[in-house]
Design a protein around this nucleic acid. Sequence first.
DNA 1: CCAATGTCCTGGTATATACCAAGGGAAAAC
DNA 2: GTTTTCCCTTGGTATATACCAGGACATTGG
Lengths: 246, 246
Amino acid sequence: MSENNPAAENKVPVFQKVIDHLRDEIRSGKLPEHSALPSERAIGKQFGISRMTARRALLAVEQEGLAYSSGRRGRFVSPQRLTYDISKTVSFFAHAESGELGLKIELISKQLTQADAALAAKLAVAEGDALYKYTRLFLLKGHPAFVEEEFAVAHLFPDLFSHDLQQSTTLLMEREYGMPPHSGDISIRMRALNEEEAGLLGLPTYNAGIELEQVIYGSDGKPFCFGRQIWRGELAEFSAHAIVTG
Amino acid sequence: MSENNPAAENKVPVFQKVIDHLRDEIRSGKLPEHSALPSERAIGKQFGISRMTARRALLAVEQEGLAYSSGRRGRFVSPQRLTYDISKTVSFFAHAESGELGLKIELISKQLTQADAALAAKLAVAEGDALYKYTRLFLLKGHPAFVEEEFAVAHLFPDLFSHDLQQSTTLLMEREYGMPPHSGDISIRMRALNEEEAGLLGLPTYNAGIELEQVIYGSDGKPFCFGRQIWRGELAEFSAHAIVTG
DNA sequence: CCAATGTCCTGGTATATACCAAGGGAAAAC
DNA sequence: GTTTTCCCTTGGTATATACCAGGACATTGG
């Protein structure tokens, strides 16, 4: 390895071979879901390469979504991806409940805040109007899947915070306040995680994730809730059925 | 820099500061779209850090989507993100044409092939049935945006390849074959690029992108085309309007 | 029995160095 | 004037090394 210039080598970078090897081990099931990958030092020794090169390969595999790192404990094989049909429901929770995904919600923070210009426009309220804001972490089978920040128009949901927020808020709003969701505007993009999100999701800070934003409208056509979810990219798949118009 | 243990430093990693600095330069407009970022070596010198640390910061900024690298020419500031409304149209081209995005299509390959099990199921044909397959690269203002692989049921579109494929194929199918799109099933996920895609999009191989798959149905409710697009993650945003059912 | 301590493992950060390959442009050759 | 050649800059790969911080776990001390 690492001769001055073998040139006989297929020009395939060393770290690529390691990536391919790890990918195979995972895809083939030799390494089952949530099992530990070899450590950086172990891979370096196994392949006769430096730790930094092994690390490069592991980071690539991690970024690919095949593995996730868990702080300084090690890297583990990612679980299966799950699908979220955005054209049928506006609540992931309702969707997840129907299956057997062990869904758990952790409340990270809640506060009463005021609408800034962007939120005011989205929720059709005046700038400065009171909004409930709460941040929650959603776990599937004990593993972080996405972080959601939600803003609800305060005057529509008096004493919202007196209720348990570790449940579907759209269901809560429907049951307790008679505000069923009728439709939603959704947008999806890929972006980098900020520090807080990365910490909650157990990812390196500048990893990419998928952001899903949605404005939820009631039967009267007026928006009452705005949510912003940031997903671990390897976990989510969003599906929809579109009817062609105009 | 790099004393044994200052501990006075705010514990903020060096590369983070560089990232923040670059982000500011880009966000503030000091570095306009498509302008060159400082090179790895230049940043190393400027901040008094090693090239590898500077590189780390640049890769993070790149991954964030704020910059793109162009082979060994350097890194440049990314252009604005654009939005693709998946609930209204099934053709990105038609969407893009309406705006002033300089859209160009490059034909990468075309062939007549046979449906494998997965494609047969998606297109409601028998396994082994003839399909047209073509791969195209879509550029916006001269910059690669996504690669699309499309499969069309062959017997519905005789001599498809005699037409110009550097245009919207849904429009082509509608105009030349009387097969307007009626609806589509779409799914979106984040995944890593393979070598070919990365090469076409000008990205490192293991980079993440957004994959959009769609089956297009005609007025008779039968599928006639399947497409798989892989987007540069920082360029795309997908929006939809959902009506809550069930 | 339980708490505190210490050791070993892990990944995270940072540096210094080396060479390669490809793009770009200036200089030299035609 | 045009083509060719060469050099410089750029990113890409790879290594060796160093220290930090946090989790896991066994050992020790009360």
